[in-house]
């Protein structure tokens, strides 16, 4: 085996000022054309070496043109396994994600979150503005978790990270949920685009206790989980309850039965 394959290297990231310039160039439209190109010119002076260790070649992320959502789960697991050493602070750094979407996983980002057609198809100012907004949303992160949920690459890593083996992270609370598959809850979260959007789009999703307990319910109630409206209503109702009741303080049994009760009411309404 080639020794260099196993040698620890460090992940490259963009410099902060470079990202600010990239955003300004995109907002003005001057770099819009480059988002149709398969390669992105990167100068060494624009990059920093982060403290994120990486070993070997980065994974190949699949994106099927006819059904790009279908590969979200396997891509999320592949990314999480490769970037397993990233901590939460590093994983919310805009410099990392901009580099990964623009350079490292550019091909995937173009297929999954790129612009359809060709640059010349963007004939009006409105069409250009819509294209710019879409790129700003999926290719850059501004320092909040809403962007992380929408960024082409960050969304996959975070989906896996937030749901990976919760019984290891908080054995006192999740001990009874232990499974052989550490990505058991990731599979539920990414089983449908609606689950991901509805559950993580709300502030509730920031609490791993609430997130995992909701996913536990959805995993055990497939019919409920197939209804976008029901998931949305469940999260809306929990959000409403949270305003006057800090359900984050509940023990596991109480939280579980509260979620079951609310879901049952929605199911029978």
């Amino acid at each position: 085996m080639n020794e260099s394959m196993n040698k620890t290297q460090y992940q490259k990231i963009f410099k902060r000022a470079v990202i600010e310039q990239m955003r300004a160039d995109l907002r003005s439209g001057s770099s819009l054309k480059t988002y149709f190109q398969h390669s992105y010119p990167v100068k060494d002076k624009d990059l920093l070496l982060s403290t994120i260790p990486v070993q070997g070649k980065s994974p190949f992320l699949k994106a099927l043109k006819r059904d790009p959502v279908a590969t979200d789960l396997e891509n999320a697991i592949a990314l999480h396994e490769f970037y397993g050493a990233i901590d939460e602070t590093q994983a919310s750094d805009p410099r990392l994600w901009a580099y990964l979407s623009h350079v490292e996983f550019r091909k995937y980002s173009l297929v999954r979150w790129g612009l359809p057609g060709e640059y010349k198809d963007l004939k009006t100012d409105d069409a250009k503005q819509r294209a710019i907004n879409q790129l700003l949303e999926h290719w850059f992160v501004r320092g909040n978790d809403r962007d992380l949920r929408r960024h082409a690459i960050a969304r996959l890593w975070w989906a896996a990270h937030l749901t990976y083996a919760p019984w290891e992270r908080d054995p006192g609370f999740f001990g009874d949920l232990k499974k052989k598959d550490p990505y058991y809850f990731t599979r539920i979260l990414l089983s449908m685009q609606d689950i991901y959007q509805q559950v993580l789009e709300r502030a509730m999703g920031r609490s791993d206790r609430i997130l995992i307990t909701v996913l536990e319910y959805l995993g055990g109630n497939k019919k409920f989980a197939q209804s976008r409206e029901k998931i949305r209503d469940l999260m809306k109702e929990l959000n409403l309850i949270y305003g006057t009741k800090k359900i984050i303080t509940l023990d596991r049994v109480s939280l579980k039965s509260l979620i079951e009760k609310v879901a049952k009411e929605i199911d029978t309404a």
Partner: peptide
């Protein structure tokens, strides 16, 4: 209750 919007963190 502690919450961080940058890192999906909410705990009590």
């Amino acid at each position: 209750e502690v919450e961080c919007q940058s890192t999906f963190f909410r705990s009590s």
